[in-house]
Design a protein around this nucleic acid. Sequence first.
DNA 1: ACCGTATGCCAACGGCTGTTGACACACAAC
DNA 2: GTTGTGTGTCAACAGCCGTTGGCATACGGT
Lengths: 193, 193
Amino acid sequence: MTAPAHPTQPRRSDATRAAILRAARERFAADGYERATIRAIAADARIDPSMVMRYYGSKEGLFAAAAEFDLRLPDLTAVSPEQLGEVLVRHFLVRWEGDETLVALLRAASTNPGAAERMRGIFADQLTAAVAAFGTDPALTARRAGLVASQILGLAFTRYVVRLPPMVDAEPEELVSWIAPTLQRYLTGLPQT
Amino acid sequence: MTAPAHPTQPRRSDATRAAILRAARERFAADGYERATIRAIAADARIDPSMVMRYYGSKEGLFAAAAEFDLRLPDLTAVSPEQLGEVLVRHFLVRWEGDETLVALLRAASTNPGAAERMRGIFADQLTAAVAAFGTDPALTARRAGLVASQILGLAFTRYVVRLPPMVDAEPEELVSWIAPTLQRYLTGLPQT
DNA sequence: ACCGTATGCCAACGGCTGTTGACACACAAC
DNA sequence: GTTGTGTGTCAACAGCCGTTGGCATACGGT
């Protein structure tokens, strides 16, 4: 502890910490958890691998810090009910294209139990909460959130991870127009109507 | 070459080969490509790691053999047009629950480029072919197949890989009733109608 | 019986991994 | 200047990985 001025003065190492985090997110997103080595991340950040250990304790700790994520879901009660699906898909597409953290989490969740646990937390907590907010039948809330997650994660998986050509080539707005009705039904509809 | 009787007489090592393949599928499905070690697979199959190398050449070769997969899609032209979605979801659910190969491929595709390539091949070739068979607009065929893949893979990813509770708990038939209309629209509908 | 080959185990290699500890330098306080 | 602490580098460890080559054994054809 430097214990200088009052609560937290910016430390000189903050830039390094940030560089490590940025490099870690890139590598985790591109290679997944096990192939993203601490040595490679450190090289990207132009520092020594041992710095990563000092600042983040372990590879698991680094991933935990790099995979911190907030879906930043809009308040669904403020959205007109028939536009719920459209708003949600567009939000996710924007959120995904602009921040590689979720792709890192997605790739890592396939093989790393901790990452899967975190993914479960994000979609169980944040998404379920958003769905519950404009609450219809509470008994169906979890199922609706799960179904939305299945289509959203499937979209991300095919577009950003496996890179299926028809999903990569599609313009965002075309994807919105196809997928919005799906989410709309998962959120407000009933099965097989 | 033993070159005994006519074309291919069953060799004594076929049981070993099969044991290796079975163990490999299990490990790849449970742990993904990099965490599934040849040593662990060999231990499961109760043989020496070097046997894996002799019979499959390398880890990549073993995976290629273990991830051989046929979706066994039904002939969609023989299905009544309004039941396409339902038939397809049910087929995939059955196919998935009964064969861990696809889960292995799914997990591995997140981190292993070769596995991703194979996944692309399976869904680009087999699924696109099935969709093209009862052909509507050829220009839309690839997109329809991609969208179906996104929902199907999202279902598999949330249910078998990340294990989101609401997706794991759901009865197969309930999933069918929710997801069938989605596939139905991806296959025969138009965007945002 | 012999011989060639297929099958299997064992020990080891080189390489890469996460992680650690010792050491050098920079900066602020006094 | 001296001291102490934060920041960074370097070299090395122990462990696991895929992979290899040699050697024993069992089998099948003759």
